[in-house]
Simulated scan of single mutants.
Amino acid sequence: MRQETRKTRRKEIQQAALALLVQHGYAATTMASVAKAAGASLETLYKWYGDKPGLFRAMVQANIEELRDELVMSAAAFRDPLAAVQEFGPRLIAVLTSEEVVALNRAAAADPSGDLGRIIAEAGRGSIAPQLTDLFARAMEGEDPAQVTEVYLGLLLGDLQIRRVIGRMPPPDAIETRERSDRALELLCRLYPACPSKPPT
């Protein structure tokens, strides 16, 4: 199978899995039901994903990989690491409050095993946070960069994801994500003396 064709097919399978996840929850969504809904063979699913956790890990990673690449590109494009963080902030908000990620988080909250929640934490936050930590280490010498990352993510996201998951707000628009990102960095620099006196503009 050609690479482009396989990429399209994987996307179709993952969309089918997401639809079943929203309708039935993580525990009741099986590899067999995904194969049937996607019109794919069970053999193909096991070959490509290994098992059900592997399938849903791939779904989370599909959202995160593009984000991670954008963060790497921002870090390379901006001499000032805080400028890279500022550029990346709106995209992070947009992805984490998107309909697909909200659906995954709703399913994780309803999964008594906690398996889906662990997958999301490992493949999502566990992939992005270390790169942010590296940027903060370069920007704020003498501070604990891991702690700075935690504080920044709290300022950036607040309760946005929770409000999206419980259906109390629509996805924020581009203006709101930009304003929230700028404000988060401004507040962060007030909290940490090692931060440059004025965040990038």
Rank of each mutant, 00 (worst) to 15 (best):
I119P: 08
L155I: 08
C195L: 05
P193Q: 11
I162T: 13
I120T: 05
R9L: 14
T30Y: 03
D80C: 02
A103Q: 03
D115H: 06
I128L: 13
A137G: 14
L71Q: 07
V34C: 08
R91N: 09
S197G: 13
E70W: 00
A19T: 14
L116R: 05
A184C: 02
L116G: 05
T5Y: 12
P81Q: 07
E99Y: 01
A184R: 02
G39D: 14
R190G: 12
T8N: 14
V34E: 10
G142Q: 11
A123P: 08
Q61G: 12
R178G: 00
G39I: 11
L188G: 03
V165W: 00
E87Y: 07
R57W: 02
Q14V: 04
K36C: 03
D80S: 03
A75Y: 01
L153H: 06
L18T: 11
G54E: 09
A129R: 14
A28R: 15
P90M: 04
D115P: 00
A58P: 11
D69Q: 15
K52L: 07
L155N: 08
Q61R: 14
L55I: 04
A19G: 10
D182R: 10
A109V: 00
L135C: 04
D144R: 10
A109N: 05
G25R: 09
L156K: 08
K198Q: 10
Q15P: 04
L153R: 11
A27F: 02
A27L: 15
I162F: 14
S98Q: 08
R9Y: 08
V85R: 06
A83H: 05
S181N: 01
P81L: 02
L188P: 06
I119R: 07
L160Q: 07
A184Y: 02
A103Y: 00
G114N: 11
K52H: 06
S33G: 11
A108L: 08
R163F: 06
G124C: 12
G25K: 08
A109Y: 00
V60F: 05
D80R: 03
L18M: 12
S197W: 02
V101Y: 12
D111A: 00
G142L: 13
L55F: 09
L55N: 04
Q161Y: 00
T177A: 13
E150W: 12
R178M: 03
T44M: 14
I64L: 01
S74G: 04
M1R: 13
D159I: 06
E141S: 13
A146E: 15
V101N: 09
D115E: 15
E186F: 07
R168F: 02
C195Q: 03
A137I: 04
I120L: 14
D69W: 09
